[in-house]
Nucleic acid binder design. Structure first.
Lengths: 348, 348
DNA sequence: TCTGGATGAGAAAACGGTTTCTCGGGAGGG
DNA sequence: CCCTCCCGAGAAACCGTTTTCTCATCCAGA
């Protein structure tokens, strides 16, 4: 079983089975013609030696490397990692491995990684980013391999996968309306982001054209500041706040608590991103819109493989649905046990 | 420049330059003997055609794939991503690409990814995890390629890289002492973690054997609970809290603020991990110990390459120093501007 | 003028598989 | 009984490089 020295080659298998290399190859790949007996004999020999074919040799002739590249500028990995997980999940069964290349926003670095990947004959490339409406700092429009964009802007005529921000946004607002909330405010990120505009539009649409949208930065600070703003202003206060991301949501929840406004009784809060580390650690844990990044990754993996294997794929932008993850920041039917979680302490 | 159809092979370069394939190869690799003129001629032809050698063909004969695999069970990527960034940084210049494989804690998945990588003839493997004192659920002890462990426990006689928890811990405590803090408490994670024990020991050591250590879970909740505990208990209250990670630190800072205890005036707080998204978003931003994961990654990349190229590397555990990142939760010499950050709001 | 070493360059083998081509033999049909 | 066809299996070509070997040629030294 995998001796120390040289790895076992198909030659060794053929020798042990008493057949030619050609026959061995065909036996193992279930191609060619031979008796079932011969085929079985070869397979037994291969198993006995622990033979695994050299992917480079195989790839050279098949012109496939069973390898794809993931290019991203999301150095923090918050968006890319779930996407990556989905890609991997979709491809590992086909024996495809994934190169991960973080290129920051550096065109030179991007070129470096891209060239390295092309040299290695990747079967395809998936480009991913931290922002749907920005491009990676590297041109992928005339590559000898197929490209799929996931969560970043693609080139003309490309295949692009994004989450359906509008649907996610609408779902959040409908949820709040269903719970009887009347004055729903949207606190979100900078208007320069396409996803911000799209979510805001869907929010307004769900409210029949009404609504209040506050734009700020993507931070807890802004969540705080927005609550200050809302509670200092004249007029009726909101009974629900739909936030553009979980960090803003966290700031909002904290600010409300500090003001003595109770969540979810007085004000319901919904976040966006379902970034577990943030959403589940707010007090109370925050209901949030999940963009299903893993599903985007799976789909991207599936599509790039389709393309790599020569099947046609309709170009264009595909939107995958978001999913509302219910926690305790909206109240409603679920029993709102505001538990502190089994914290145990040992003094020593 | 990279025409659509078939990629350009060295044959094309040789043909254009009017030399043989062998000569072309030697010219491009700066090996063999030939006139400078011939060499230049080939290089010009290669540049003109945009020739890039097929790494699979090259790898087949050189028995190098210029590829390494990163195996991790850290699905959230908090530890693995910085390590990955370091590895990439160290290797991209050598033309080495990195396969990232998330294997959760599933032995079958681990084997699947490992086999896929070995088939692809990776030059080496780096194993990484979310916990220094746990092994990946896959045996890497008798592989035909070198293995380096980064931030996870290795096998007998292996090369392992970890952060120097004791030094980091000591640095944090020294910092607090230098600022005149006298009653420093350590609030940290479960004692089952080796890093917890090591940090706690170093903390006690820095205090001359004294000290109070509170163990709980790795959560904001526990940070809160610990403060409750400390402020409800009899006796003198701490004037500094050194936390086992940033999430606990965040809970501590929040709990203190809610109690009206001011940070850093009354109590200084130090975190661990320097997880920017947490540490910089506490109010005030939190001083924290950075484990230099990127440096660990760089070193792991460097070492696995050394091994892959046949050079000897002393086995054993190598500890890389931590670095204290000063923010505003300890006061001290730096001007403690408790700014709210340029929050701008636009109502629309 | 002859020999021998150095030099430039190409032919060919190798890497480890897959795939096409070839070939001998057995079965079946005329 | 002979011819054909099909089947099983091996020989050889191929993928795109690198590397070793071989071989002219040229120049220096005797």
């Amino acid at each position: 079983m995998s001796a120390g020295g040289g790895r076992v080659r198909i030659y060794d298998v053929a020798h042990l089975a008493g057949v030619s290399v050609a026959t061995a190859s065909k036996a193992l790949n279930d191609t060619g013609r031979m008796t079932d007996e011969t085929r079985a004999k070869v397979k037994v020999a291969a198993a006995e030696l622990g033979f695994r074919p050299n992917a480079m040799a195989r790839g050279l002739i098949q012109r496939r490397s069973f390898t794809i590249g993931l290019l991203t500028n999301d150095s923090y990995g918050r968006f890319t990692l779930p996407v990556m997980a989905g890609i991997s999940e979709a491809l590992v069964d086909q024996g495809v491995s994934v190169f991960l290349c973080g290129i920051e926003d550096d065109p030179a670095l991007g070129k470096l990684h891209l060239d390295a990947m092309l040299d290695k004959q990747v079967d395809g490339i998936i480009a991913s980013g931290k922002r749907v409406d920005r491009r990676l700092p590297v041109d992928l429009s005339n590559l000898p391999v197929p490209v799929v964009y996931a969560f970043t802007e693609g080139h003309e005529g490309s295949v692009t996968l994004v989450s359906d921000d509008a649907q996610g946004s609408a779902e959040a607002v409908e949820h709040l309306k269903r719970l009887g909330r009347k004055r729903i405010v949207h606190v979100t990120g900078p208007e320069t982001f396409a996803s911000v505009r799209e979510r805001a539009a869907a929010y307004r649409n769900a409210l029949g054209g009404e609504g209040i949208v506050l734009h700020g930065e993507w931070s807890e600070h802004w969540g705080h500041a927005a609550v200050d703003l809302l509670w200092t202003a004249e007029g009726a206060r909101p009974d629900a706040i739909f936030c553009g991301n979980d960090q803003i949501g966290r700031g909002v929840v904290d600010a409300l608590r500090e003001r003595g406004v109770s969540v979810p009784e007085d004000v319901a809060v919904v976040g966006f991103d379902n970034w577990d580390i943030v959403a589940s650690q707010t007090r109370p844990p925050m209901t949030s819109v999940d963009m299903n990044l893993k599903a985007i990754g799976r789909e991207a993996g599936r599509l790039v493989l389709e393309l790599a294997e020569g099947r046609a794929v309709e170009p264009g932008i595909r939107k995958l649905p978001c999913r509302l993850v219910i926690r305790q920041s909206c109240g409603g039917n679920a029993a709102v046990t505001h538990r502190r979680g089994g914290v145990e302490a040992t003094v020593d």
